[in-house]
């Protein structure tokens, strides 16, 4: 297969790049993914979040048909239950997989060939991406000579070389310095601009908030969040207050209804399901208030609320 032509690209894409319906996957007695339904709109950036071991990677592997679901249907790029769409999927796994003894260029051509892209067609793409990632001088060197950040970028190139319709990135930013993180972030956004649907899993909630159109959170194999960031936040309402008082956290001791969820140093974030005006009066009575802002919870807070240790203990009880 050569790189896709414009006519291929202009063919009407399915509404959903990924459509999972009631998908369950078990390993022995352990339920890794439980009755999951998920629709990833074509052209979107979909963030997968969840604690370690919650089922993100298993879900991704089912989308790639590396694992077969025990029940339910897995439809990818309009094709159901087969690996036939895999040539149109770029994949960057959580743990990088590169041949240390191969040169960067040769390895990239090999990975492209496995996606059905001929060496002739992939060659200029490899050069273009190496240049974009500032890796041109490393093309003829063995992978083992690369730093961790460089290897990460090479792995990313291998995922996008075939111009996939769906790009799945498992923790793409882990281990990157801020400069390289920006390079990769910009590359992902460019790929999306060209029509590629992007799914990426991350533990970095700020990145997810900044980049994703949709957020999906899986916890203990169950879907606990799914929607746009705004809709998820709206579900939780404006129960979060950013607060700074003279005397800091200690000054809030004994104030009724104050539950500090995060201490940012310069300000505190507290949760208040009740009336914010009443809370402000109670705090003002005890300390001088410098900042009091009623807002929706951050994705980080929502994540922690769902996956915090108390929840686990409650669940175990």
């Amino acid at each position: 297969m050569a790189l896709r032509t414009k006519s291929d690209m202009s063919a009407a894409p399915p509404s959903f790049a990924v459509n999972l319906v009631d998908v369950t996957k078990r390993f022995g007695t352990q339920v890794a993914v439980n009755n999951l339904s998920l629709q990833v709109p074509t052209g979107s950036i979909y963030g997968f979040i969840g604690p370690n071991g919650s089922g993100k990677t298993t879900t991704i592997r089912m989308i790639l048909h590396i694992f077969l679901a025990d029940s339910g249907t897995v439809e990818v790029l309009g094709r159901q239950g087969t690996r036939s769409a895999n040539d149109d999927i770029g994949y960057l796994p959580e743990e990088r997989g590169l041949y240390k003894k191969m040169t960067v260029r040769r390895m990239l051509l090999y990975y492209a060939a496995l996606k059905g892209v001929s060496e002739k067609a992939a060659g200029p793409e490899v050069d273009r991406w190496l240049e974009r990632m500032d890796l041109t001088p490393w093309g003829k060197k063995n992978v083992e000579a690369l730093s961790k950040g460089m290897a990460q970028k090479v792995q990313f190139i291998s995922a996008v070389l075939s111009k996939p319709k769906l790009l799945i990135l498992d923790e793409p930013f882990s281990g990157l310095d801020p400069v390289n993180l920006e390079v990769l972030r910009s590359a992902i956004l460019d790929v999306r601009k060209q029509g590629t649907t992007v799914i990426f899993s991350t533990h970095n909630m700020t990145t997810a908030e900044e980049m994703c159109d949709y957020i999906f959170m899986i916890y203990r194999g169950n879907k606990v969040l799914d929607g746009t960031l705004a809709s998820i936040r709206a579900t939780y309402g404006e129960d979060t207050i950013r607060l700074r008082v003279q005397g800091g956290r200690a000054a809030l001791q004994g104030v009724e209804g104050v539950e500090v969820t995060r201490d940012f140093g310069q300000h505190l974030e507290i949760r208040n399901p009740g009336d914010p005006q009443a809370l402000l009066q109670r705090i003002a009575a005890k300390a001088r208030v410098e900042l009091f802002e009623v807002t929706t919870p951050s994705l980080h807070d929502i994540f922690v609320r769902i996956a915090r240790p108390e929840t686990k203990e409650e669940a175990n009880a």
């Binding site: 895999n86 743990e95 997989g97 496995l114």
Partner: peptide, 16 residues
């Protein structure tokens, strides 16, 4: 080597 260096997962996403 492919398994220890996690190359296998990349390959298996492209080939059976």
């Amino acid at each position: 080597e492919e398994k220890m260096q996690k190359i296998a997962e990349v390959l298996i996403s492209s080939v059976t």
